[in-house]
Amino acid sequence: MENKAKDYSHIKGWGIDADPKNDPTYPMRKRENEDHEGYSWDRPPQQPVDIEVLHSIERPNVTAVFGTSRPPRGLSGKIRRFAFRYGEGSFAHWLPLVMADRVDVVEGILDDLRKGHLPNIWAERGMGAEWKYNRKGLLQRMAVTTALTAAVIVLLKRD
């Protein structure tokens, strides 16, 4: 092998956590008999379920705690409810969720407009930083995008 160091004294802490027993071919599980009895532990108290929480059909219940950031809503919520009728190994679960995410984006824009907020796409995409640190690249991308858009418009307007 090339460049193989023999003296590691220049590397602070070299080998201090070396553990010959940490061989992944050894069994790693530390399960006791009671762990084989299934859902047997004393569960923490249940967080009140006062919002809609979609839960995987691969578990019997809502977990003791859960996030409340965004309950399902609107059309995206309907798609999410459909997705949660299927197991986690199924594309019928994940692909609708991806679709719901995209519908959610449109709903988010409509929601902003309904509240009188016009999304500042330039700022939301962090283009200020791009302008500051990569102005040439940004201008090139804008020029290419403008040229392609113009070409498409010209093509569409031709008889």
């Binding site: 599980r29 762990d35 047997s40 923490p44 691969e58 578990r59 977990t63 003791a64 705690v65």
Partner: peptide, 30 residues
């Protein structure tokens, strides 16, 4: 990781696999 410390996975120090923190998926913890 969000972990309860009481489920069978937390008992084995698999805090990233806690079974009482993520209702949406069993394949990931909270």
């Amino acid at each position: 990781n969000i972990a309860c410390g009481e489920c069978t996975f937390c008992e084995q120090e698999l805090y990233s696999c806690c079974h009482e923190a993520n209702p949406q998926a069993t394949a990931a913890g909270g």
